[in-house]
């Protein structure tokens, strides 16, 4: 019966990457027209993201001096016995900065993932 013994098969996971991604990244390295298109799309996306976050920063935190310059009476407003200026400038602003940073990191990493995916898709 030893004749019918099934042939041994090595069991492995699915191939992680079907091709070595040389061709497209080569385009980028060698600054071909195609490579330029890839890169400038990533660059534009990341720059637009950066500008959006900085605009949010300027509109919120950056506008405060102007607001208090135009309406100095606001400085006398108190919330829970604390002047509102102290609450805004001493406390609230910090979590807001972290939030803006968190949003940027998430979006920037997603843009990069999409870019890497696009390159892989182009391989196939």
């Amino acid at each position: 019966m030893s004749d019918h013994r099934p042939v041994r098969v090595r069991v492995t996971g699915p191939p992680l990457r079907r091709h070595a991604p040389r061709a497209r990244t080569g385009d980028i390295d060698e600054q071909t027209a195609l490579g330029d298109v890839f890169l400038s799309s990533l660059l534009r996306e990341q720059l637009a993201l950066a500008v959006r976050i900085l605009a949010l920063l300027a509109l919120t935190v950056g506008s405060l001096p102007l607001v208090f310059h135009l309406f100095p009476g606001l400085a006398d407003v108190e919330v829970l016995w604390v002047p509102v200026t102290w609450l805004l400038l001493g406390v609230v602003v910090y979590p807001w900065l972290v939030l803006l940073g968190l949003r940027f990191v998430r979006r920037a990493e997603r843009n990069e993932r999409d870019f890497a995916l696009l390159l892989e898709v182009m391989e196939e």
Partner: peptide
Amino acid sequence: AQMLWYPIGWTAGYLVLLVLVAA
């Protein structure tokens, strides 16, 4: 309170750095 802008700026400087130059 006008001096609170220094610590705010020293922190926000890192946000600007993160957004424009870190990676």
